[in-house]
């Protein structure tokens, strides 16, 4: 609760620079999405999105100048979100009968099962 974090005014220049970076990021994502890199497409899109989100959080939302408490709160949120995603997805990935995965992106449509199948159909 120190006084300097209280009255920190972010210069307009910074805002404009961040806006420019966000636009460049958007353009980059759309450009890359034209090509089929398989799994890489998602990874690139998510990486760019994460960078954009970080910029928004740090500068538009002033976290770069905020108290440590704010940073901890955000870190905790992201950590718990990661638990939710990670612990669930590992279950799906290590199931023995769960063969339809990210690696099958390149498979032609004919090889896909015609009728939708539940992923967790058990043994």
């Amino acid at each position: 609760m120190s006084a300097h974090s209280e009255h920190h005014v972010v210069p307009v220049k910074v805002y404009l620079a961040i806006f420019g970076a966000l636009m460049v990021g958007t353009a980059l994502t759309v450009f890359v999405a034209q090509f089929n890199f398989g799994v890489l497409n998602v990874l690139i899109a998510l990486t760019v999105a994460c960078i954009k989100a970080t910029l928004v959080i740090l500068f538009f939302m002033h976290v770069a100048y905020s108290s440590r408490l704010t940073k901890v709160v955000i870190g905790a949120g992201i950590f718990w979100f990661a638990i939710l995603i990670f612990m669930t997805i590992t279950d799906y990935r290590v199931r023995q009968d769960w063969h339809v995965g990210l690696g099958s992106l390149e498979k032609p449509a004919a090889e896909q099962p015609a009728a939708p199948q539940p992923s967790g159909s058990g043994h």
């Binding site: 994502t29 999405a33 090509f35 497409n41 899109a45 998510l46 954009k52 928004v56 939302m61």
Partner: peptide
């Protein structure tokens, strides 16, 4: 403002995940 930027961040993820995964 914090709320508004958060809504923006959600869209930053939604756009590539929903609109771009089949763009090629």
């Amino acid at each position: 403002g914090l709320y508004w930027h958060f809504v923006d961040i959600v869209w930053i993820f939604l756009f590539p995940l929903l609109y771009l995964s089949g763009y090629h």
